[in-house]
Each structure stands twice: as C-alpha cells, then as structure tokens.
Design a protein around this nucleic acid. Sequence first.
DNA 1: TAGATATAAGTAAGTACTCACATAAAAATT
DNA 2: AATTTTTATGTGAGTACTTACTTATATCTA
Lengths: 178, 178
Amino acid sequence: MLTFDMTEKQEKILQAALQLFAREGFHATSTSKVAKKAGVSEGLIFRHFGNKEGLLQAILEEGENRLKSLFVDIVMEPNPKEVIRKTIEMTDKIDVSDYDFWKLQFKLKWELEISGDKKMEPLNMALTNAFRKLNYESPELEAQLLILFIDGLGSAVLKGSKLNSDQMIQLLLKKYNI
Amino acid sequence: MLTFDMTEKQEKILQAALQLFAREGFHATSTSKVAKKAGVSEGLIFRHFGNKEGLLQAILEEGENRLKSLFVDIVMEPNPKEVIRKTIEMTDKIDVSDYDFWKLQFKLKWELEISGDKKMEPLNMALTNAFRKLNYESPELEAQLLILFIDGLGSAVLKGSKLNSDQMIQLLLKKYNI
DNA sequence: TAGATATAAGTAAGTACTCACATAAAAATT
DNA sequence: AATTTTTATGTGAGTACTTACTTATATCTA
C-alpha cells in the first residue's frame, strides 16, 4: 500500500494493531499489547498516531482505498449482467492474507457504530443502473438486496461459517440468469 | 420473562447491563458503569453473577429462549410456502422495545466470537424441508441463502440503515412466488 | 549539530473483583 | 407465638493490576 513515507517501526505498529484489533477487538486490545507485538516501545505509538483512536483511523483510511479498488472494476463495467456477476463473485476475490483486514471492517461496524453505508454508495449506484438496464421492476431495491447478500456472505465467510460459498455463488448467479 | 425468583435489584442489574452492553459494547462497559446505572453497589453484581462474564451469560440465556419462541411458529407450520413467508417476515415481528436485546446478539457475534450458527439450526431444517417440498433443486442451499438474507436484513434494521425493510420484504416474497 | 526517531520510566484514572460487615427474610427451635 | 439461628441480600471501602497517555532522555541520521 501507498504508505511510503513510513518508518519500518511505524509499519510494524500498524500491522500488529490490525491483527490484534481484528482478532480480539478494538477495546479488548491495549496499546501495550500492540507495542509488545510490534516489538516497539509503547510511547512510539503515541508519537506517531497521537492516540489509540488515531491508530485505528490510520488503519481504516487504508480500508477506504482497498474498498474502492475492489469496486472500481465493477463500477467501470458497461455490461449490466457483468456488473451483477462481478458483484456476486466479489467475496471470492478476497485474498486469505487480507482476512484480518476485512474482519476488522465488519467488526467495527458493530463494536464502534461505523455504518459503512456510505462506502457502499458507488456499488449501489452501479448495481441500480445495471438492474435498470435489464428492466427490473425496482432497480434500487434489487441493488440493496444484492448488497445485503454480499454483506451477509462476506460476514459468514469471515466468521468461518461452514457455509459453502462457491455453491452459494453458483446458486445466486443462476437466480439472476447469469 | 420467566425470571421469577429474582430480586428487584437483580433485574435492575440485568436491565442496565443489557442496555449498556448493546449500545456501548461488552468490553467498553465497566462493571462500575453497570452498577451506577442500575442504582446498586458494584459488589452486588459479583454476588449475583460471579463475574462480568456471568452477567453476560445471564442475559444470553434469556436470548436462547426468545430465539426459540420466534422460531417455534415457523417450525410448526406445515405449509411450506407459509414457512418461507413467515421467515421472510420475521424481522417485522421484532418489537422496537427489544431492539437492545437483538442488537446485543448481533454485536456479540463479532465482539466475542459467538457463532450463532447452532441457534439457527431449527430454522435451517424447517426451511430446507419447505424448499424440498416445493421441489427446489438445492433445498439446503436455498435455506442457507434465505437465512443469509434475513440475517442481513435484521442487521441492517438494527444498525439503523435507511433501507426500507417493508419494500424489501415485499420484493423477497415476490421472488419466492408468495 | 539539529531535528527526527525512539525509549524507559513514569502518571493518574480506571479495571474487575474481594472482603468485612450490616440488615432483612426464612427456618428452626423453644 | 415468641425467640433464636441460619441464610440470602446488600453495601462501601479496599485490592492488585491494567489502562491510555506523558515526559525526560538518549540515539540515530542528514
């Protein structure tokens, strides 16, 4: 990621914080734990990020970008059926090494009350347009419904549910005649 | 609820804890905060519930029962189309005064890693059966998909999303030809 | 040598939890 | 029915420890 002007230790801190926040939770993770895991003095966290909240923000900003880069391929797609297909297959595109990162995003929606509604807006628009082109009766609703689904599927996968996501994706594609 | 052999103060504690855990989170809520809100000495919490975890368990046990009573009407239903309809309309049945309670259930799935998969098993069975009777190709998958939807819908409603759940329910009913 | 990067050793406030003690309710004994 | 004994319910001050955050001091690097 484009975190170029960053010390080695700064990155270590972010990495450790991401893992701990994602696995244990924000409030359950102390700054001293983060420092220990990062192999760094606790004070350094506050030098670089101001406070614990600032540390979280630094992680979340990167999240904004990652989400956008996931969406850009979908939003640019002209073929409406392809928009829907790519959306449905989105969860499959998530790299296992990024699980901590996405888990944190979901977790924070509940632990702190970060909505995530706004972040979905571009996808919502793209889907609404796609459904409109395909002459669906309520394109806006259809878009929200599909977003609801990928949110649920993502959440299930990240929580380690025994649900077979490949089969689920196939089933959905069929339902949308793709 | 059937918490008959309970002191007034005991119920006050549970009530305060439920509200705080649901709105602020488990780790963000201290036992002293709970005691203060309940108008009770902090020690009493530990007298009655052993520790903070025990306090949470007491609240969650009630949850088990509430979930069952939500399901029983669906599970007993013989008409498969009615099973699906009742499932889809489930979120509508949730009383606003119970929002804290359900919010806590969703929140805990992420804050502590409480799966909730098992609790859904009866509903999963009922739906699988219903879809089988209606000759759907993959009844198990269809059941899981519908559960994914209502989970997402409930989560959206509780998080105060601007999504119109009535319209969403209508759309879903139409998709299942009900 | 000046400024950024880092640390170790603090701080005050908060954390979950305990304990000695008081009172109210229930049971047992007279 | 009156009295004692036991138990359940409650308190408030204290425990050891952790928390987020600060500050004085050292060590790099340009």
